[in-house]
Design a protein around this nucleic acid. Sequence first.
RNA 1: GUCCCCAUCGUCUAGAGGCCUAGGACACCUCCCUUUCACGGAGGCGACCGGGGUUCGAAUCCCCGUGGGGACGCCA
Length: 469
Amino acid sequence: MTVRTRFAPSPTGFLHIGGARTALFSWAFAKKHGGDFILRIEDTDVARSTPEAVQAILDGMQWLGLDYDEGPFYQMQRMDRYKEVIQTMLDAGSAYYCYSSREELDALREQQMANKQKPRYDGKWRPEAGKVLPMPPAGVAPAIRFKNPVDGVVAWDDMVKGRIEIANAELDDLIIARADGTPTYNFCVVVDDSDMGITQVIRGDDHVNNTPRQINMLKALAELDAKIVIPQYAHLSMILGNDGQKLSKRHGAVSVMQYDDDGYLPEAVINYLARLGWSHGDEEVFSKQQFAEWFDLDHITPSAAQFNTEKLNWLNAHYIKQADNAYLVKDITKRLAKLGVAISEQPALPAVIDLYKERANTLNELAASIAYFYQNPIIDEASAEKHLTAEIKPVLAALVQSLRSIDWQAEAIHHQIEAAVTSNSLKFPKVAMPLRVMLTGIAQSPSIDQVMALLGKDEVLARVNSALK
RNA sequence: GUCCCCAUCGUCUAGAGGCCUAGGACACCUCCCUUUCACGGAGGCGACCGGGGUUCGAAUCCCCGUGGGGACGCCA
């Protein structure tokens, strides 16, 4: 049987890091087994679903390069199918109308909570052999409930967590269609996973509690249609924030696109996410393709994982070093523009990037650190005070003169600095440091002769002269 | 409250009863490289939640405890 996995987000917000990892693992499992990865949008909560959120999810997946073989399918476009299945369940007696009002149900729940009981439906409208149902109240539109088995246990071998067993006595009759006729989540998932031939359901472990209900519905459906099979389930643990706290809208949950904004490469985010809760021996750095070849459910950690920006930074720095310059030039030009810096012909951006790409954790850092090539540097006062001393200024003034006539190459520049250093019996940094501050604004830069070579003779002379005034 | 899940360095993890004196990676520290800062290289610090079993032998299996998390909607 061909492997078919799916990612099924509800479009009520952006694609966050947890969803992205779920999608990545589902994608990888399908790729590993030569199967199909399906995207399904679970938009039955009309009140909270938005087209913007759908787009945000699509954008996030595209940025990460998680391509799907089928979809996106929209549940709202499958209403007829859901209603059809509900009717067959009603006919077969595995579903029934429930006339309990929301108020009634709320009161029941509250009372049960007060009695320290597990809140559950009391079965008032559940048909039972020999049971006399109350008269349906007039003018009340009924919801439809699934008739869950009362006895026995539901069990499955979770591919991440191992065998999980839940007593049917713990479950109640969930609503599969609202009073207005729209089907609810657990039911739609069952119909879709079944119709779409999903073989492995890989999802967040907040769904563990839904699984027994879904299996029971699948079993009921299978009695009506022998072709229906129960998929395998794999429940991924959640991702915690940097501080070990749960991610939420209020606390640290951000869109994957935020990582783009913040200067992270998708390769780095993919690599990082892959290693969060999954491992392949001691392997740390690998591509998406390599991940897809290695991926397996046996090496997923069942426990929650804490996000660690520092490790992401390390990976990102690695991928920036690896990135090809054409890509970086395009990207950095954009980021510089955002900083209000327009690049000019000279110094050539590829050369500047070459000089700096080994020094940045993020693309934003890279852009910010080279801005001084295209605009006057903002001189750091403390550095200026420390390095640009009264004693060294005459040396620098003389050095500038000697630089006027030389061939503007890093080596020649180095020679001149060296000459100034020896003739004044100084140490190299004594001269290099003030130059750094005058030219770049700060006391850290790549090799100063290379910086000067790139900056250009005129610009160097202008900046030094202006700083010496 | 009930049910379910989880538990190895600060963090991500390796670990399938002897290969474990518990390995790797990030972070941190030291040294080397050096023209400052990075990069790179070498080293260091640092963990099996607790208690009982099972076994010749347990990080690994079982039980109890503790701690953390999730779920209990006409949300998904």
